Simulated scan of single mutants.
Amino acid sequence: MFFQRSWTKKDQAQLLIDIGRCLSDGYPLITALSLPENRKRPKVQEDMERMRQSMIAGSPLHEVLHALHFPGEIASSIYFAETGGNLSAALIESGTMILRREQYKETMRRFMRYPLFLIWVLCTIMFVIGRFLLPSFIQLYRSLSLELPLITKALLYLSEHVAEAAVIAVVIGFALALCVIYYRKLPLLPRLRFTSRLPIIGRYIRLYHTHLFAFHLGSLLSSGLNIKQSIHILTEKGTSPFLKSEAERMEQNLLNGLPLDSFVLGPVYYLPELAEAIHQGQRHSLLGKVLCQFSMQLMKRMEQQSKWLLSMCQPLMLILVGGFVLMLFLSILLPIFHMINAL
């Protein structure tokens, strides 16, 4: 089964929300896919017809969505919902999650638009100064036997060694590319342990994977399954590599007689609050509900921290670009001031 990747993220989100609402209204899944209001562009209509034919032939919904290049965690959520029996709510929630991500991306593009414009202006100014103004001023200063300030010497050194700087940048970029290739070849858990210890990104890694684990396990438990059944489902085909690996490790720990909350205390890619949430949920016999509520709280925390990080990036970029522009003008104006003082 092959689908061309021509769907936008908003198309994917709207499809999930529409199908989820139709299921909530009592429509069968095949009928929900056939409703005219779910169809948009011609390519979307064509793919939706293929979806309907594939599902009539027996393909589950999560496999059809995976073939349409939906995000892997979304297909996993639909797989769990098909198993647990709460498909309509999972479809609406998954579509809302995609829309929220798209809003984050749009916010980031809006925040970065002005700093990127400043960087373009900075590059233009550097080219004009280095190509036309600076050589003339340097020749004038040397003819007058003036001692150049340190900032002017630094800029002159950079302008004279552009080729060497470009070679160094290429070497650094090549080294970073090799590091990324090596990192991707590492097993999943060592990669998570490494990135979870990084200063800034590590916090988001821990938030995301704690949310992912709590959300999926809580959803399965809330659908009426017990802990062993939920963990077994997480080990089956259709789950993400992270959830499958963690479920297999959890299943082994339970066979060894270890409590559930002890499973999440060791790994650095989980927040310490997850163990407390599991303990409180088991204590009150509401583990599924507690984990779902905890995952929603983590989602809100990720939203707040993302907004805070974006709000800090723009002023920082403005300060850096403005400081560099100021340095460029000082490298030219300071010798002029020295020349005036020497008269």
Rank of each mutant, 00 (worst) to 15 (best):
200 I>R: 10
101 R>F: 03
32 A>N: 00
50 R>H: 12
86 N>S: 15
127 F>I: 10
38 N>C: 11
253 N>Q: 06
114 Y>T: 07
238 G>Q: 02
253 N>V: 01
233 I>Y: 08
342 A>K: 05
29 L>I: 11
127 F>R: 06
57 A>K: 13
107 T>N: 14
6 S>V: 14
27 Y>R: 00
298 L>H: 06
188 L>R: 05
258 L>N: 07
82 E>S: 12
4 Q>I: 11
301 R>N: 05
82 E>V: 07
322 G>R: 07
211 H>A: 12
322 G>P: 07
166 A>N: 04
248 E>K: 02
2 F>S: 15
185 K>Y: 08
95 G>E: 11
125 I>M: 01
223 S>T: 11
330 L>S: 04
92 I>T: 15
318 L>H: 11
282 Q>M: 08
188 L>I: 04
29 L>A: 01
102 E>R: 03
232 H>M: 10
212 L>K: 05
210 T>F: 05
216 H>L: 09
128 V>L: 05
203 R>A: 07
133 L>V: 04
241 P>A: 04
39 R>S: 08
150 L>Q: 12
208 Y>Q: 12
133 L>N: 02
232 H>R: 14
76 S>D: 10
93 E>M: 10
82 E>D: 10
270 Y>W: 07
150 L>K: 09
59 S>D: 09
279 H>V: 09
322 G>A: 02
14 Q>E: 09
258 L>P: 06
185 K>S: 10
143 S>Y: 04
56 I>F: 10
167 V>D: 07
11 D>L: 00
134 L>M: 03
9 K>S: 07
114 Y>M: 11
235 T>V: 02
330 L>D: 03
121 V>F: 12
107 T>D: 09
1 M>L: 10
306 S>V: 03
218 G>Y: 01
45 Q>M: 14
215 F>Y: 11
230 S>L: 03
197 R>A: 12
7 W>Q: 02
160 E>S: 13
215 F>P: 00
225 L>I: 08
241 P>W: 04
341 N>V: 00
129 I>M: 06
243 L>R: 03
159 S>Y: 10
32 A>E: 00
235 T>W: 02
14 Q>P: 00
337 F>S: 05
222 S>E: 15
117 F>E: 12
187 P>E: 00
127 F>K: 13
212 L>M: 09
167 V>W: 09
105 K>M: 03
298 L>A: 08
59 S>L: 09
110 R>M: 11
70 F>G: 04
176 L>W: 08
325 V>Q: 08
158 L>A: 13
309 L>I: 06
318 L>Y: 11
266 G>Q: 15
228 K>S: 14
327 M>C: 15
241 P>M: 06
169 A>W: 04
180 V>M: 14
87 L>P: 13
340 I>H: 05
102 E>V: 05
165 A>F: 02
237 K>H: 13
262 S>H: 14
73 E>S: 10
7 W>F: 09
193 R>V: 09
311 S>L: 09
218 G>H: 04
202 G>K: 05
113 R>V: 07
